[in-house]
Amino acid sequence: MGDQPLVRWDWIASHLVDPIGTRLLEHLQLSITPILLGLLLALPLGVACVRWRALYPPVFTTVNILYAIPSIALFFLLLPYTSFSAWTAIIPLTVYTLAVLVPNVVDGLNQVPDHVRQAAEAMGFGPLRRLVQVELPVALPVVIAGLRVAAVATISMVSVASLVGLGGLGQLILTEGFRRQFPTPIVVGIVLSVALAFLVDGLLVLLQRWWTPWTPRPARAGGRNRRSAAASTAAASSAADRPAAPEGRRRRA
């Protein structure tokens, strides 16, 4: 890049709406859909795995094998079937979120204390009502911990979808930046993608505090040291990776 500055603010100013804004919106859409779809699939799957225990090992192994597949390969393999629609990105990304979410739903439900379950039963709750009104709310912090990992991973992975031509911030990085040997859009793409990931992560933390006010908050103000930080991420790791896997489910390229 030589004599060019790393960031040219005038370019950013004149391209703020298009392509920066449009690509950001595409990115948001391409990442939020798989996260929501993944949650929608993981909840019943997780409930089923807790209800019928024999189901869990095969489900767990399957999602983990799928998780090992590089996203770029899956995008290209799907391309002839889904062509250049958003589904080419959404289907693989949804599958990846399952690898994080299903174990967390199962762990969350397994962590519901027996006396809580019995109390619900004693109050006359049927199985379905007990699940919806007692067990799922108690499991919620663990589910949200998984959702946070899945969301951050998905948002960073969507960039790869641009290599297939599906848009998003990766497209900004690739076509505006790399093909033109122009670093500014690359920097903008990276910064926006990281900012989006942190924003969604922060929103999920707020959502959890609002939904489950009974859970203890991590002590802030300098006291938020390794153990509490580790505990929150460790809760998001999968069962096979115990004991405590803080960085087990990372996003890939």
Binding site: M1, V152, S156, F178, I186, I190, F198, E247
Partner: peptide, 21 residues
Amino acid sequence: ASAANVGRALPTIGVLMLVVL
């Protein structure tokens, strides 16, 4: 922990292409 969080959120292809540029 911070390194991990940032690392997790970084879009790989951006990093790769920026370094190459």
